[in-house]
Design a protein around this nucleic acid. Structure first.
Length: 776
DNA sequence: TCGTCTGGCACTTTTGAATGGC
DNA sequence: AGCCATTCAAAAGTGCCAGACG
């Protein structure tokens, strides 16, 4: 029996549903979020109990929805950043991601409802440092933080809704505040992360289940920072982000302008002081404007002895124009003198930032333009000059086409991997005019069947299911495959607000996707670059940092054709359950039928930090980031080719001995994309042995338990396996739903989580602590 | 001492209220 | 009175920077 006690890190977070009502100007075509009785049901919730994990007892049936596909619409922009080494600022108050995730979904059932989730998981268990122009792994990762998931504000919405527009997660914010009360996604600084997007069938926020599709875009990996380390990233951000327009060359906040302002302030102070000193009696002419006062105040600060700030010819005009005399309002004078520049700047800015993320979520096709902007701004990106990295790890043929930067430090025990050469890739794909083109990989996933209630006393009305039979014993539950419009009455006003509280979901991970059938990956060089815009079906664990000892390419989930990924429900489907802390038994589990242990592939999840790390290392090799575990060597991560590798590896892995190293993988270009993967006897692989020394649903699917249980890991690993870090390299990361404090939609879940009295005032609502940690 | 983080700054865009005209 | 467009200010989102912190 699972309980919240087993999940001490279960926390509440603000629900983002509110955004769709609260912030979006464009009213989303929302469907009712809650059933009419949601509030009543919520009120009846007893605290901190979890229903038994659903027990699968019926096979899953394949449905057409397995053809769900996702495209990263701004893949080009992401590639630009990834080619340099994407950095994401995280702040205490939360910082939006830029670039943001802009997605296009297809293949959904227009009449079904879906919830879209974004979560961000560690890409490895290393901490990074920017050294020598590149990112170097300098140690183990910090302990994992509470997992939070950003629910797309439109959720739940029909497939037609999702498919009719660009899906943007730009409202998601990242923070390094472990005590964050805003529901932002909490990350460690200087760690590498991989965003994931999950599409989950859901009749509403309380009825999840059925099909679930997870997508990973390797080019969206990033390293979190509190201040940008790589100047190229800064330049890219400034050139691409509208909010940073002021920092562009033509902007008012550009380096030149800032220097000019600094000089003006100094000049004002100097002249003022001179005047005061020379003619203290004539103060009437020195009545400073507010701007002058500010300048004076600032000028009173220690002057920066910046030799670079010396007078420059190009600034002469500024000096002459902006500091005409003392009585002139400097700010106005400056503005007046720069109006033309401002106009030009703004115009250019818009033109130069075609790939910019528009905060309002307006659909835009930024890829091609963004690419242009990038090439114009960073023509030397291909040189990777900022990454005098150590020599690449032994590049397999799969990556032979990648440019290998010269090594500046071959003796570096933790060599940095050069950034992905997206520009070169793009140049090789002139046809890439839009990332919206059909991805070369099919984002197919299997469908999680909703497990039937484990027993009659454990009703699970919250679960939707793709397995109609699962509802035979739950007449009150409507199959998610049933068109919901008619059967889903509008919720009472009190239910309008979205969830508040964090939901823990387990094992929302899907099995790896099968390659796109209609677009076989024939050659890593010739693969259209926007292939990487195709989402990966997240193969449970994303590992770009496989353990050296466990880098055997394990023919895990990859060997099964996606169309056959119909998993029987786990016998102890804990990993597949969404845990609602404090939810009464009949509402506690959001069951996500898990490809559980009943199927060999289920063990893959449980071996996330072992076997999957190795297989995924090939499937998701590191991007431009360096992982320099001394014993590890990664092929240069080429997101586009990575996809190819991903698919090809699925095949080759099955034919490789367990000890085969990913680097020895055959060139994906030689592997034809196919949907058929020969089944593999998982049990033949030690790491996949069902007799794991721990219960995956209790350990690997809950990071908080991992440290304590790590000692058991070696028993399932080769004796030479190094001691795991703070947490296994790639555990199966559960989903945790963050509720948006901005939301006024939280009423139902307020009841769900308001069992403790540690509420805190919040400008936009009251938030409560869970028993184990402050949330709000 | 160094690397990292934080808060304030100036600038921008976004958002919503206020205003005025029809 | 209602609708629409415009204006304005506040809020929020940026990167930069100096100082604080460990």
């Amino acid at each position: 029996m699972l309980s919240v006690e087993m999940y001490p890190s279960l926390t509440l977070g603000p629900q983002r549903f509110g955004d769709c009502f609260y912030r979006d100007r464009q009213p989303p075509a929302h469907m009712p979020l809650f059933p009419p009785a949601c509030d009543m049901a919520a009120k009846a919730l007893p605290p901190r109990l979890l229903a038994p994990p659903p027990v699968p007892n019926e096979p899953v049936t394949k449905t057409p929805k397995d053809e769900v596909r996702m495209e990263l619409e701004n893949a080009s922009l992401w590639k630009q950043f990834s080619s340099v080494g994407t950095e994401m600022i995280i702040t205490k108050k939360g910082r939006r991601m830029f670039p943001g995730l802009r997605l296009k979904l297809s293949g959904l059932n227009p009449s079904l409802r879906y919830i879209l989730l974004l979560d961000i998981i560690p890409a490895d268990n290393s901490r990074y440092r920017f050294q020598g122009g590149g990112w170097q792994a300098v140690g183990g990762a910090e302990a994992r933080l509470p997992d939070r998931v950003f629910i797309h504000p439109d959720s739940p919405a029909t497939g037609a809704h999702w498919q009719s527009r660009t899906i943007s997660f730009h409202y998601a914010k990242l923070t390094n505040n472990t005590l964050d009360t805003q529901g932002h996604i909490i990350l460690h600084s200087l760690h590498r992360y991989q965003p994931r997007v999950h599409v989950i069938e859901a009749r509403d926020v309380l009825r999840w289940g059925g099909g679930q599709h997870s997508f990973v875009f390797p080019e969206t990996q990033f390293i979190t920072v509190t201040a940008y380390q790589n100047n190229k990233i800064t330049e890219l951000k400034i050139s691409s982000n509208p909010f940073a327009k002021g920092f562009r060359e033509e902007g008012m906040n550009s380096k030149k302008q800032r220097d000019a302002r600094q000089k003006r302030k100094v000049s004002v102070l100097t002249e003022t002081l001179d005047i005061v000193n020379c003619d203290p009696c004539d103060s009437t002419e020195l009545q400073p404007t507010s701007t002058d006062l500010q300048a004076l105040a600032l000028a009173s600060l220690p002057q920066l002895p910046d030799p670079s700030c010396g007078f420059r010819p190009e600034e002469a005009s500024y000096q002459d124009t902006l500091v005409p005399d003392q009585s002139l309002d400097l700010g106005q004078a400056f503005m007046a003198s720069q109006m033309s520049d401002i106009s030009i700047s703004m115009a250019n800015g818009m033109q130069n930032a075609p790939g910019s993320e528009v905060a309002n979520g307006i659909i835009e096709r930024s890829d091609t333009m963004g690419e242009q902007a990038y090439t114009s701004t960073f023509p030397a990106a291909q040189t990777n000059s900022s990454f005098p990295s150590a020599p690449l790890p032994h590049s397999s043929s799969s990556f032979s086409s990648l440019p290998v930067p010269s090594s500046s430090d071959t003796s570096n025990p933790q060599p940095s991997i050069p950034p992905i050469d997206y520009p070169s890739l793009l140049s090789a794909s002139p046809t890439l005019s839009s990332s919206s083109t059909t991805p070369s990989l099919q984002q197919t996933s299997f469908t999680f069947p909703t497990p039937p209630p484990s027993n009659s006393s454990s009703p699970q009305p919250l679960l939707s299911s793709s397995s109609p039979s699962a509802y035979h014993t739950m007449p009150e539950t409507i199959s998610p495959h049933t068109p919901t419009e008619a059967s889903f009455p509008a919720p009472p006003s009190t239910c309008q607000p979205g969830l508040q509280g964090q939901i823990s979901a387990h094992s929302l991970l899907t099995q790896p996707s099968q390659p796109l059938q209609d677009e076989p990956i024939s050659n890593g060089n010739n693969v259209p670059s926007d292939q990487s815009s195709a989402g990966f079906i997240y193969p449970n664990i994303l590992s770009a940092n496989p353990d050296p000892v466990t880098t055997q390419p394990l023919p895990n989930q990859n060997h099964l054709p996606a169309h056959s990924l119909q998993w029987p429900l786990p016998t102890h489907g804990a990993p597949s359950s969404f845990s609602f802390p404090s939810v009464p038994p009949h509402m506690q589990n959001m069951s996500f039928p898990n490809p559980g242990s009943a199927h060999p592939a289920l063990h893959l999840q449980n071996l996330s930090h072992q076997a999957q790390a190795s297989s995924l290392a090939a499937a998701f090799p590191p991007s431009s980031f360096t992982h320099s575990s001394s014993s590890l060597s990664h092929p240069p991560f080429q997101p586009s080719s990575c996809l190819a590798v991903s698919s090809s590896f699925q095949q080759c892995a099955t034919s490789l001995p367990p000890t085969a190293h990913p680097q020895n993988l055959p060139n994906p270009s030689t592997s034809s994309s196919t949907s058929s993967y020969p089944p593999v006897e998982i049990s033949a692989i030690p790491q996949f042995n069902p007799a794991a020394p721990y219960r995956p649903e209790m350990v690997l699917h809950h990071p908080s338990l991992l440290p304590q249980l790590d000692p058991s890991l070696p028993s399932s690993l080769p004796s030479s396996t190094p001691t795991p870090g703070l947490y296994p390299a790639f555990p199966s990361y559960p989903l945790r739903l963050c509720q948006d404090p901005h939301s006024s939609l939280s009423i139902p879940f307020r009841h769900l989580y308001r069992q403790h009295q540690h509420g805190h005032a919040h400008p936009q609502g009251s938030y409560l602590d869970m028993s184990t940690r402050a949330v709000f």
